[in-house]
């Protein structure tokens, strides 16, 4: 046996990791995910300006290709507002106003879902299709990808919100035995006070949602204003 590991026991050792460690992981993951997201959308930014500058066969943007600037603006505003509300919710969570935080989380969730719904309405209502030239291709590709990322972010918020609601009456940060274990044969917890991870989770989400709102604003400027 080695001097740094002496026994073969497993769960007694691995359980009870400090929540701060996972909190740090979540924080770094939020930033790394934003980096990956930036490079993903960089491809669409490149596609927009590259195809626009080439204007092959004069088909970059035929005259009838005009998205609804009203709907586009509303979608962008909803995503940005949701990011703001999540940020306010985080402020509530940090000072212990858990009820207000949950309320703001629910509002942000509704705003995010509304943005997705309105984007679908826009796709249905505009009078051009994906085959209407280079601009139309970029428009549909970029907005569809953005909605996929937004749906993922909404899922992330929903998990935090659901945890906050489920354990709203639990006085400490310990859920009942067996509820915080990935293994159905275990009753212990992997993490000490796993419910305390709501705050770092919300911090990471707030950063990422703000970043995604930035991407949405960029898309709005490029696709609707330029």
């Amino acid at each position: 046996m080695s001097e740094v590991t002496a026994n073969e026991s497993a769960y007694e050792i691995v359980e009870s990791e400090p929540a701060e460690l996972l909190g740090r992981n979540l924080g770094s993951a939020g930033h790394l995910l934003a980096s990956a997201t930036a490079f993903f959308f960089l491809a669409f930014v490149f596609a927009y300006f590259y195809l626009r500058s080439l204007n092959n066969a004069g088909m970059w943007r035929p005259n009838h290709v005009h998205p609804s600037i009203t709907l586009g603006t509303i979608v962008t505003a909803l995503v940005a507002a949701a990011a703001l509300v999540v940020r306010l919710g985080l402020a509530d969570q940090r000072v212990g106003r858990r009820v207000q935080c949950r309320t703001k989380g629910a509002i942000a969730l509704a705003l995010g879902v509304a943005a997705v719904v309105l984007q679908i309405v826009e796709w249905e209502s505009i009078d051009f299709g994906p085959a209407s030239g280079g601009y139309a291709s970029v428009f549909f590709g970029w907005t569809a990808a953005l909605m996929l990322f937004l749906l993922g972010t909404i899922y992330w918020l929903e998990t935090l919100l659901a945890t906050a609601y489920r354990y709203r009456n639990v006085p400490h940060n310990n859920p009942p035995p067996g509820e915080a274990s990935g293994d159905r044969y275990r009753t212990g917890h992997d993490i000490i006070e796993p419910l305390s991870l709501v705050t770092p989770g919300l911090e990471a989400l707030t950063f990422y949602w703000s970043f995604l709102a930035g991407i949405t604003v960029l898309a709005w400027v490029v696709l609707y204003l330029l």
Partner: peptide, 18 residues
């Protein structure tokens, strides 16, 4: 796990390790 998180169960780290 993602489904459990949707239902509000808290995070965990390990599955089928032993």
């Amino acid at each position: 796990y993602p489904f459990a998180r949707v239902r509000g169960y808290p995070p965990s780290l390990r599955e089928k390790e032993s």
